[in-house]
Design a protein around this nucleic acid. Structure first.
Length: 740
DNA sequence: CACCCACCCC
């Protein structure tokens, strides 16, 4: 065994001093006291004379081992103490006291040489060689000293040298702590495991619990590769020993479980802690509530909230924030606002903070109540709550207004933001650009982007995704690709989303080779297509009549472990139906059902459309009747639209109109396509009266006409001299604040 | 506890 001679760290020296202090103080030199008498005899005689001194032997045999410890401590130095120890050890009747004297020797050596654990090790090795039992206190001293000197092996050797009969939890804890502290997780856990065994001689105590969990949850060793399940298992085993984690480290553990998505584990652990009387603070509850909210597990959220109430755990503003956020998410804005009111009335005992306001403003915007959001921002300004609107407040509102197409309002708010401390950030820009792109104002978006870049605000992946989506939508694939390259040059790492965007853009443009190339690049970057991505590309190849390529992708997809879903099957069914190949369509449909996927309304739509295209409207109608009677799939707007269009094309306008009535009776919404088909049919018959009636109905239902509607009506009605009615139709949309 | 990006089938 090599001796380490690392210097002792100062804190260790302090600990040792504390440890070696005599708890009873130095006794007065009283000749009637055997301790004093022995001590003075030792101090006044030569150690060589001790073995022959019968008075000394008599005195010592009358003393208890702890008294011997006291005496040894007061000898003039470690050298002298060591001689005393040797003397005790070699005297048959006194050898039981030797381990106590040895402890004092160690204390003295430490005091004399605070920085040489090596010396201590030599003494330890000597005692071991001589088979002197190591007292638990002496062992503890050595372990503390070796632990601080990073002398791991030595530390474990000392522990092993302490007789299991006298070994206590405290000393085992010291070793466990030392091992964890130096990152020796497996060794530390092995010791802990021993302590946790039923009937263990050194069962864990509260300190063991804290050592273990601060080590595995603390930042220093990042858990030492322990998985959440292993941590939870330890937690349970400690609980079984009556030691349930609470407080700070419980919070850490729950937050870790939640962060890793192990919600059930977090739930079980928190339940255990709450029901075993541990100190459960509000913080772990907040972590779990937040996670449950993400998973939309409202049942458990409510259960937990009730439990918190029962256990007297007071919610914080964060707890309220989580509740409000989730009410917003399920679009129960009025209830969320009620919570705010309660907070403002002082009923909750907690003042709302800026996050609460921002959550609500975002929630309002996301359900289309931008104006209410704006008003709430004004409330923030006027309230005495020190909640001035910040960048996030504005970002929520900008996004809200942009999402409903009110770009101008978004822009106004965007400009107002320069008054804020933080001003606009990348999220403001992205919300604004996204809005502009969605309404097709791509050049304005590009202008704004370059203006912001001049001011030093660079775009990120999200920015480029918005722009690339817009250019793909405008079929300007080249520009989209340029932006993609620019983005990479600017140091933005493409994420999976931007690859999906490009793949979908290329596919829509019918450029399957380019789409395949992006797919390869994506895979090189470490991403892989998801089921939606495969569906997009399979659909793209089908539209190009390249069923071979589609089939290859299908195989690849299944090898990758992705099963075809309803959309995949519908894509293929639609392909065969479009070709009039109903035999293959049926085959695919059978496979779909065999896979446990029932046909959807889209499946029926594909077949019905196929029959219509083939000219067998009667076959289409038979299927349609089946849908209504035998299948559990009720026809939707698209199905009706296909049939109405087909009836009109066959000049059966009456049939089309009666289908329209049926839609109304069955509560199926009419859309622009429905009206367009009907207008075309009515135009063939020149039934302008009926058309005017439908126009009224259309505007009443706030169904927006598109360029197809306008083309038909303009041509037909101007010729029929109904220009005024047409103008009225257009005006009706202006009045309802919609733009035609 | 708050804000920004994507997509499939009729």
């Amino acid at each position: 065994m090599r001796l380490s001679l690392k210097p002792l760290k100062p804190p260790a020296a302090a600990t040792l001093r504390r440890f070696s202090a005599d708890p009873h103080g130095t006794p007065p030199a009283d000749p009637s006291c055997p301790i004093s008498e022995t001590l003075s005899l030792l101090q006044t005689s030569d150690p060589i004379s001790w073995p022959a001194n019968s008075t000394l032997a008599d005195l010592l045999s009358s003393l208890s081992p702890p008294s011997v410890l006291k005496i040894t401590r007061q000898l003039p130095g470690s050298q002298n103490a060591l001689q005393f120890f040797e003397y005790l050890k070699s005297s048959p009747h006194l050898s039981d006291s030797a381990p106590f004297a040895f402890q004092a020797v160690l204390e003295l050596v430490m005091r004399e040489n605070p920085n040489s654990p090596g010396k201590l090790y030599e003494l330890f090795a000597m005692a071991k060689e001589q088979n002197t039992p190591l007292s638990v206190n002496a062992g503890t001293l050595l372990i503390m000293c070796f632990s601080n000197a990073n002398m791991l092996e030595e530390m474990v050797m000392v522990l092993d040298a302490i007789d299991t009969q006298v070994r206590n939890t405290h000393v085992v804890n010291l070793v466990v702590f030392g091992l964890f502290n130096l990152g020796r997780f497996p060794a530390a856990l092995k010791l802990v495991d021993k302590m946790l065994q039923p009937g263990a001689s050194n069962p864990p105590n509260g300190r063991t619990l804290r050592i273990v969990f601060s080590s595995i949850l603390g930042k220093k060793h990042r858990g030492g590769d322990l998985g959440d399940e292993e941590i939870y298992d330890l937690f349970l085993r400690f609980s079984e020993n009556g030691l349930c984690l609470g407080g700070y480290w419980l919070t850490h553990m729950i937050s870790r479980f939640c962060r890793n998505g192990n919600c059930d584990t977090a739930w079980n652990a928190l339940q255990k802690a709450m029901n075993s009387g541990s100190v459960v603070e509000v913080f772990p509850c907040n972590f779990l509530l937040s996670r449950l909210g993400q998973q939309r597990d409202y049942t458990r959220m409510n259960l937990l909230m009730n439990e918190m109430k029962e256990k007297g755990i007071t919610p914080t503003v964060v707890t309220y924030g989580i509740m409000i956020k989730n009410l917003c998410k399920i679009r129960r804005l009025d209830e969320a606002l009620e919570v705010l009111e309660k907070m403002r009335d002082g009923e909750a005992g907690i003042e709302p903070d800026i996050v609460i306001y921002n959550t609500l403003i975002d929630g309002l915007c996301k359900v289309g109540r931008q104006e209410d959001g704006l008003r709430l921002m004004e409330t923030m300004r006027s309230s005495e709550t020190k909640c001035e609107p910040n960048t996030v407040t504005y970002n929520c509102l900008i996004d809200g207004f942009c999402k409903v197409g009110d770009i101008d309002m978004g822009r106004e708010l965007f400009e107002q933001m320069s008054n804020l401390d933080e001003g606009v950030n990348i999220i403001s820009l992205n919300a604004m650009l996204g809005g502009m792109c969605r309404v097709g104002r791509v050049s304005s978006a590009m202008e704004l982007f370059s203006r912001m870049r001049e001011k030093g605000l660079e775009g990120n992946t999200v920015t480029y995704t918005a722009l690339i989506t817009a250019f793909c939508g405008a079929n300007n694939i080249e520009k989209a690709m340029d932006l993609f390259d620019e983005m990479k040059e600017n140091g933005c790492t493409p994420d999976a989303i931007i690859y999906y965007t490009l793949i979908s853009g290329f596919t829509r443009a019918g450029r399957m080779n380019d789409a395949m190339e992006i797919k390869s690049k994506m895979e090189e970057a470490g991403f892989s297509l998801d089921i939606i991505g495969y569906n997009i590309m399979i659909g793209g190849f089908c539209r190009k009549n390249k069923i071979g390529n589609a089939s290859e992708l299908l195989t690849e997809m299944e090898i990758a472990g992705l099963n075809p879903d309803r959309v995949t099957y519908n894509t293929l069914i639609s392909y065969f139906c479009d070709k009039g190949d109903f035999k293959h369509a049926q085959k695919v449909m059978k496979k779909m059902v065999d896979d446990g996927l029932s046909p959807t309304v889209v499946t029926y739509g594909a077949l019905i459309q196929g029959y219509c295209m083939k000219g067998s409207l009667s076959a289409a109608m038979r299927l349609f009747t089946d849908m209504k009677s035998t299948s559990k799939v009720p026809p939707n707007t698209v199905i009706y639209n296909i049939l109405i269009d087909s009836h009109c094309k066959e000049d059966n306008v009456e049939g089309a109109l009666s289908l329209m009535d049926e839609m109304r009776d069955h509560g199926v919404k009419l859309n622009t396509t429905t009206y367009n088909a009907l207008f075309k049919g009515l135009q063939q018959r020149n039934w302008s009266k009926k058309a005017l009636q439908l126009m009224k109905q259309m505007s009443k239902q706030e169904c927006m006409p598109d360029y197809v509607t306008m083309e038909i009506l303009t041509e037909w009605l101007s010729a029929a001299g109904e220009t005024e009615k047409l103008k009225e139709f257009v005006r009706s949309y202006r009045a309802s604040n919609l733009t035609v």
